[in-house]
Nucleic acid binder design. Sequence first.
DNA 1: GTATGTGAATAGATTCACAGCT
DNA 2: AGCTGTGAATCTATTCACATAC
Lengths: 231, 231
Amino acid sequence: MSPSRTNGSTTDELVETIPEATVARLPVYLRGLVELADGGVATVSSVELADLAGVNAANVRKDLSYLHAHGTRGVGYEVDHLIGEISFVLGGGEPSPVVIVGIGNLGRALSRYDGFVAGGFPVAGLVDADPAVVGKRIGGRTVRPVEDLPAVVAESGCTVGIIATPASAAQDAADHLVAAGIPSILNFAPSVVQVPDQVDLRQVDLATELQILGYHQHRRVAGGASVRAVG
Amino acid sequence: MSPSRTNGSTTDELVETIPEATVARLPVYLRGLVELADGGVATVSSVELADLAGVNAANVRKDLSYLHAHGTRGVGYEVDHLIGEISFVLGGGEPSPVVIVGIGNLGRALSRYDGFVAGGFPVAGLVDADPAVVGKRIGGRTVRPVEDLPAVVAESGCTVGIIATPASAAQDAADHLVAAGIPSILNFAPSVVQVPDQVDLRQVDLATELQILGYHQHRRVAGGASVRAVG
DNA sequence: GTATGTGAATAGATTCACAGCT
DNA sequence: AGCTGTGAATCTATTCACATAC
């Protein structure tokens, strides 16, 4: 599900490795834990955390064991400590500023999305290839030309790029981000883009998500009969 | 990865079943195939399609075998035929109108997002719980109060609900959608919501995606040493 | 008694490798 | 010769079940 992975060199396995499926759940645990902490809760059991995250309790325990985040038998896990461990694993506590490429409807919405700032991903740059968009101000930031990407990255220290262009411009956007030295890219455009192995790329595809829902819905309504009628 | 699955009754297995991982790739194949068809290409090999989709060729062949979409040995698959098969599996060709709950930045952007219409998911309703937002017109549609959901669903025939509220309102939004009889929900709010078993729920979590990127980035930069320094 | 930590069992997905068809 | 279709092997993930610790 994560399209490109860093290709493991021979010495790689010395670094403690966490399964991809576990990494994908850690942010969900973190959210639940922060809520608990805000509510003044000091310890949490794997069953409670599993409930909050919507997963199996054994799964939670195994996931946390990869972090070496030990709990206390008969008691549970210390909420604050867990928050620290997970935050550290997910980026070392440092905020990672992001630059958004493509300031259309979606790009504008993303640039104002509070969840990014709260999660430690402040929007630090906006760029677009369209001269009609360049120069506009969105939420206190000026849209700059995509050619300025290296400068924007240098000034703001962005380490994450978000592609919010139409599909036809996505590969171009990715090329620009890679050329500017961005190591992590989140692609919202509905298109497969190619990046070098050392760049980490994730895809968020809204239409695809709806189509997956469509499959289940079709199955439920149509059942087996009409499916067979086609083959 | 798909949070809630319809609980399989005893007779369920008579219906031909397609692995979840395959279903998630079908929309990507479909996109590639439509591009090929637009370019006048009549047949495609598993290797070519795999390239377009960014996956392994054997994977493509196995995926297509679940659809009973047979190719011709020595030649490949017929593009038009494949498009028909995949479209049918992903919702039977019928468009599924969607209703968006929560018309903030994200909801507005989604309501204007072209990819939905193109993919067969026209936006047919907008609702919000905030009286200050209700009544506004967005792209030719009027935002209606969330209490009107049953009426909106009845009038427009919506079968998919999109939650674009803040996290704190997400469970409420889900409850409203379920009460209105919506069977498929896509949740953009950063929060785990509970729905009955028969409702299909998928989560799209922007901040989570960034945090996953953060994990890989941190690993790459920090390496093993500083990880160990904490334990 | 209660909840963790983890080996073993199970389930699911990917990839290989090659027989079989055109 | 070229490409599909698929069993077998492999890898990854989830869940169970229980010994272990508080």
